[in-house]
């Protein structure tokens, strides 16, 4: 354990990977509140296919850690019922790619229960699910379809990119009053490790994080696209280009103030995500900047994204944005005037 350097009060920290931080958050949430239950496929005995729920069954028992039949509809549907009755279920969907059987439960039910009941039946379910490419998962273990959920009123959509945020955002999700889609960047589950504050460390939703300060251009990213964006910024610094990298952390709610403040300073924006470009989250960011930062802009808004194709297997390195594509887009933006 070490002290967390940025915290004014001395807080003990532990070096963890992203997936370990998720696991730590689940343990702490379940210890703190007996109403927190975990359910999903292979989450109990097996500890989750990525080991995110490892150890929970042993500590909390089969009444609180439920290995469910293989049905996403059943997982989310029963989680909704548990939440309506007053429990705080944290459901795992094994891959975001497999969430669609539960789409009706999420979009028609979970997202709308508070609204359609006039506030009588709020429904707080956290749905954790690994998302994104980079693990040679092909069409069905790689997709980034966060935009579907961002488009539905009533859902919060959160994407951590560091171990500390994985724990802090997940503890905030469990403590929230609204349904949360918690997207875990599986590509960096183990690739990134960092100091994670011990104890009840919460990161609020709607507060973006400045990964790196800069003055020439703003790079907006989230999840597994944050590390390559930071790497591109380091490369560009050697060329005399000062790129600011902003990690959005939560897509709904979006920290619009941070996005607008960054572009007011730099005048240029590059949006990075691994999801397909058309109607992707970057389109919403670009529209926001066009509506509210038009007079700050010195260059066209650029998007570095996955292509408008299904997610490939052999060509995943071609599909996914990497530091080179991000750096190239930044250079173009800086040269544009």
């Amino acid at each position: 354990m070490r002290r967390h350097p940025r915290d004014p009060v001395e807080v003990a920290v532990t070096e963890l990977t992203v997936v370990q931080a998720v696991n730590r958050a689940l343990h702490e949430a379940m210890r703190a509140d007996p109403d927190v239950v975990v359910l999903g496929e292979d989450v109990g005995v097996n500890g989750g296919v990525f080991r995110a729920t490892d150890g929970l069954l042993k500590e909390f028992g089969a009444d609180r850690v439920l290995d469910t039949p293989l049905s996403e509809t059943g997982i989310v549907g029963t989680a909704i019922g548990m939440a309506l009755y007053g429990l705080k279920p944290v459901a795992e969907i094994q891959f975001l790619d497999f969430i669609y059987p539960a789409f009706d439960q999420i979009v028609s039910e979970l997202a709308k229960l508070r609204y359609r009941s006039g506030g009588q039946f709020p429904c707080h379910v956290v749905i954790r699910t690994p998302y994104g490419g980079g693990i040679k998962g092909g069409l069905y273990h790689s997709q980034s379809t966060e935009a579907y959920f961002c488009h539905t009123a009533g859902l919060k959509v959160v994407v951590p990119s560091t171990p500390a945020d994985a724990k802090g955002l997940l503890l905030s999700a469990v403590a929230d009053e609204d349904p949360v889609i918690f997207l875990e960047p599986k590509r960096i589950y183990r690739a990134v490790s960092g100091e994670v504050p011990d104890g009840d460390h919460r990161v609020p939703f709607g507060q973006a994080r400045t990964v790196r300060d800069g003055t020439d251009v703003s790079v907006f990213a989230y999840g597994a696209m944050v590390p390559p964006s930071a790497e591109a910024a380091t490369t560009l610094a050697g060329e005399g280009i000062s790129a600011e990298v902003v990690d959005l952390r939560s897509l709904v709610p979006l920290d619009e103030a941070a996005v607008l403040a960054s572009v007011a300073k730099t005048g240029r924006a590059v949006v990075v995500h691994e999801a397909a470009r058309f109607c992707g989250f970057g389109a919403e960011l670009a529209a926001l900047l066009a509506e509210k930062a038009f007079y700050s802009l010195k260059a066209p808004i650029a998007r570095v994204t996955g292509y408008d194709t299904p997610f490939p297997y052999a060509l995943e390195h071609v599909y996914l944005p990497g530091p080179e594509r991000i750096a190239a887009a930044v250079r173009d933006a800086v040269r544009a005037n």
Binding site: V37, T73, G77, L84, E109, F121
Partner: peptide, 25 residues
Amino acid sequence: FVSASSPIGTQIPQAVGAAMAVRYR
């Protein structure tokens, strides 16, 4: 009397989840 919706059958697994919570409590 839980909120009703129009999609067919969506309330069925919800009732089961609530029953699981009843038993947990």
